[in-house]
Amino acid sequence: MVFGGCGSAVLAAAFPQLGIGFAGVSLAFGLTVLTMAYAVGHVSGGHFNPAVTVGLWAGGRFEAGKVIPYVAAQVIGAILAALALYAIASGRADWSLAANGLASNGFGTHSPGGYALQSAFLAEVLLTGFFLLIIMGSTHPKAPAGFAPIAIGLGLTLIHLVSIPVTNTSVNPARSTGPALIEGGIALQQLWVFWAAPLIGGALGGFVYRTLIARNDD
């Protein structure tokens, strides 16, 4: 998620002549989760996201004892990806971490559109909750087989199209942690929001699906 999604923002969207732009970055995040879900979903379930892991637990689809190991692996992967992205981006003479960053998330002065904390928090809670509804619905035994990664990837693309101007889109605490740890400063100071809001949203989404939708399957 960090190398594919944030990488598209840092390495490609920085050059308007390449044509990737805002929509291209959104699509890159969606394509990342789509392709990786097909690649390793059969191995691990293809979470890539602490909020998804917590949401699936809240939705009764994941064992509590596996939550911490999964979250640890996701955060480690995000940090390693951010380091790799930094190593590549810093190879350009006119690039600097302070000026260009690694597509970290933020609110207030660190929000792409200048959105306040309350807007950022609400957007992250709602969109992460919706993301869990998409994941749980598309992976339900009664859903069309084999198409879940497509729905999930397109869902994440839509989420980014909505919220990049607000927070640069997290809905994934690991994705937020990797760039923030490398950037430091305000990105690191505001990181708590991008743990709290997605985890709340993920848990709410999983719980809502479990209690209001799955209960009425029959």
Results as ranks from 00 to 15, higher is better:
residue 70 Y to M: 00
residue 75 V to T: 07
residue 85 L to W: 03
residue 191 L to H: 04
residue 152 I to D: 11
residue 31 L to H: 00
residue 149 P to Q: 10
residue 153 G to C: 05
residue 194 F to R: 01
residue 153 G to I: 02
residue 15 F to L: 04
residue 126 L to R: 00
residue 103 A to K: 01
residue 203 A to P: 12
residue 162 V to Y: 14
residue 44 S to Q: 11
residue 151 A to F: 15
residue 72 A to D: 00
residue 3 F to T: 02
residue 180 A to F: 02
residue 16 P to I: 10
residue 170 S to H: 06
residue 18 L to E: 12
residue 85 L to S: 01
residue 198 P to R: 06
residue 13 A to I: 03
residue 122 L to F: 14
residue 43 V to F: 14
residue 19 G to V: 10
residue 116 A to L: 14
residue 40 V to N: 09
residue 206 G to S: 13
residue 98 A to I: 11
residue 54 V to N: 07
residue 129 G to A: 11
residue 173 P to E: 13
residue 59 G to S: 10
residue 142 K to E: 10
residue 60 G to R: 03
residue 92 R to L: 10
residue 158 L to F: 15
residue 211 T to D: 07
residue 106 G to V: 07
residue 215 R to T: 13
residue 47 H to I: 11
residue 29 F to W: 15
residue 150 I to C: 07
residue 103 A to G: 04
residue 101 G to P: 02
residue 40 V to L: 13
residue 68 I to P: 00
residue 72 A to N: 00
residue 183 E to N: 07
residue 108 G to M: 08
residue 110 H to L: 15
residue 171 V to G: 12
residue 134 I to N: 07
residue 49 N to R: 13
residue 150 I to K: 01
residue 126 L to V: 15
residue 85 L to H: 03
residue 101 G to Y: 04
residue 34 L to G: 01
residue 182 I to D: 10
residue 132 L to N: 06
residue 205 G to C: 10
residue 131 F to L: 15
residue 124 E to A: 06
residue 168 N to K: 08
residue 77 G to R: 06
residue 85 L to C: 10
residue 166 V to K: 01
residue 26 S to Q: 03
residue 3 F to C: 04
residue 17 Q to F: 07
residue 174 A to L: 11
residue 13 A to V: 01
residue 147 F to Q: 11
residue 134 I to H: 03
residue 61 R to Y: 01
residue 35 T to M: 09
residue 50 P to S: 09
residue 155 G to I: 06
residue 105 N to F: 02
residue 19 G to F: 13
residue 32 T to R: 02
residue 14 A to K: 09
residue 134 I to V: 15
residue 125 V to E: 04
residue 190 Q to C: 01
residue 41 G to Y: 10
residue 52 V to C: 12
residue 38 Y to M: 00
residue 40 V to T: 14
residue 11 L to M: 11
residue 50 P to A: 12
residue 112 P to S: 05
residue 29 F to L: 09
residue 151 A to Y: 11
residue 174 A to G: 06
residue 71 V to N: 01
residue 178 G to W: 03
residue 189 Q to Y: 05
residue 24 G to F: 14
residue 60 G to N: 10
residue 53 T to L: 13
residue 16 P to M: 04
residue 93 A to K: 13
residue 217 D to K: 06
residue 100 N to A: 13
residue 9 A to I: 05
residue 76 I to T: 05
residue 144 P to D: 03
residue 209 Y to H: 14
residue 77 G to H: 12
residue 110 H to P: 01
residue 138 S to F: 04
residue 103 A to H: 04
residue 198 P to N: 08
residue 68 I to L: 15
residue 125 V to A: 07
residue 70 Y to L: 05
residue 27 L to K: 09
residue 114 G to P: 09
residue 207 F to Q: 07
residue 97 L to Q: 11
residue 91 G to W: 08
residue 10 V to H: 04
residue 86 Y to W: 15
residue 123 A to S: 14
